[in-house]
Simulated scan of single mutants.
Amino acid sequence: MNSRGKNTRHLKIKDSNKINGFYPANISVKILHSGECKVGSVALHVGHNNDLGHLNLCKMETKALAVKISSKIPFQAILDEVRESVSRDKLDRVHLLTKRDLYNIEQCYNLNRESIRYVQDVVSVEPWIKEV
């Protein structure tokens, strides 16, 4: 069978977090025979910048977005509101919010279901019956 492709991969639009190299920052702990701990560190940061697109949303922003999602506000309305809050002086990670971020928050807080299911089956049966 002949291959149709050129065996090349497409790069992600929002490039990778990987630096294609060795990251020198580290912390090492050595426990001496006397019971003392000797700690050493290298705080060198090389290879990439802290780009805004690669940062995570802070917990406060995530919780505020989770409240809006749980209130059944449409994702597009949330995105519009966040984008309207952008000022020329300050651009934060939340201003680069995507629908994928909102889906992830929805899944993380289990907001996509009418009833919250529990890990234990015995406890989760009653909410499932009420939902059905």
Score class of each variant (00 low, 15 high):
91 L>H: 04
102 L>C: 03
118 Y>P: 01
119 V>G: 03
86 V>Y: 12
112 N>T: 00
98 T>H: 04
101 D>S: 03
116 I>H: 08
108 C>Q: 15
112 N>L: 03
102 L>P: 01
88 R>E: 14
99 K>T: 05
79 L>D: 07
109 Y>E: 05
87 S>V: 12
112 N>V: 02
105 I>M: 12
114 E>D: 11
88 R>S: 14
81 E>C: 08
84 E>L: 14
79 L>F: 10
107 Q>S: 14
114 E>L: 14
106 E>S: 15
91 L>D: 00
110 N>H: 12
101 D>Q: 05
100 R>D: 09
86 V>E: 13
92 D>T: 02
109 Y>W: 14
90 K>C: 08
95 H>W: 06
115 S>P: 00
91 L>Q: 10
107 Q>C: 11
92 D>S: 09
115 S>C: 12
77 A>E: 14
81 E>A: 13
117 R>P: 00
85 S>T: 12
96 L>S: 01
114 E>R: 14
83 R>I: 05
119 V>H: 05
98 T>W: 02
99 K>I: 03
89 D>E: 07
77 A>Y: 08
80 D>A: 10
114 E>G: 10
111 L>Q: 06
109 Y>H: 14
77 A>N: 10
90 K>M: 06
84 E>D: 14
103 Y>E: 11
93 R>V: 02
93 R>G: 00
112 N>Y: 09
86 V>T: 13
90 K>V: 09
97 L>P: 01
98 T>F: 03
89 D>C: 04
118 Y>R: 06
118 Y>E: 02
99 K>V: 03
117 R>W: 04
86 V>L: 15
115 S>E: 15
116 I>V: 10
91 L>V: 11
96 L>H: 07
86 V>F: 13
118 Y>H: 09
79 L>C: 11
106 E>D: 08
98 T>M: 08
119 V>L: 09
84 E>A: 15
94 V>A: 01
85 S>C: 09
110 N>Q: 15
106 E>W: 05
91 L>Y: 00
79 L>T: 06
93 R>S: 00
99 K>M: 07
109 Y>R: 05
76 Q>G: 03
86 V>N: 08
118 Y>K: 08
112 N>H: 11
83 R>V: 04
97 L>C: 03
108 C>L: 15
94 V>Q: 04
109 Y>D: 04
96 L>G: 02
95 H>R: 01
85 S>Y: 11
98 T>R: 13
113 R>S: 12
80 D>M: 08
77 A>Q: 12
96 L>F: 12
90 K>R: 11
91 L>G: 01
94 V>N: 02
77 A>K: 13
114 E>A: 10
110 N>L: 13
79 L>Y: 13
78 I>L: 09
95 H>L: 00
